[in-house]
């Protein structure tokens, strides 16, 4: 029996990195847009974070559809 440890390791690494990365980026977006006295730069950065997350969702849909 051959267990593909490399693939399993990849799944682990990619999953953890992507989850932490996406949640982190999205949280930065939330932090940048919450609160009324935020600067323009903070807001712009926050929207960039949201855009990045939206792109990730779009990539997720591509992965699902293109299977």
């Amino acid at each position: 029996m051959h267990i593909d440890w490399v693939a399993l390791g990849q799944v682990f690494g990619v999953s953890v990195l992507m989850t932490v990365g996406l949640v982190g980026v999205f949280t930065l977006g939330i932090v940048g847009t919450s609160g009324s006295s935020r600067s323009v730069a903070a807001r712009a950065g926050a929207y960039a974070c949201y855009a990045l997350c939206a792109a990730a969702v779009a990539y997720g849909i591509v992965l699902i559809v293109g299977k």
Binding site: F12, T19, V20, V23, F26, T27, V31, T33, S34, G35
Partner: peptide, 29 residues
């Protein structure tokens, strides 16, 4: 795999949003 990823992500998001009102951030989450 999912447990480690979710634990790490939860820790990170609480750290990053520290000092923020939970009610305020809840909408985004």
């Amino acid at each position: 795999v999912a447990g480690v990823a979710a634990t790490a992500a939860t820790r990170l998001t609480y750290r990053l949003s520290r000092g923020r009102d939970e009610k305020e951030t809840a909408k985004g989450y």
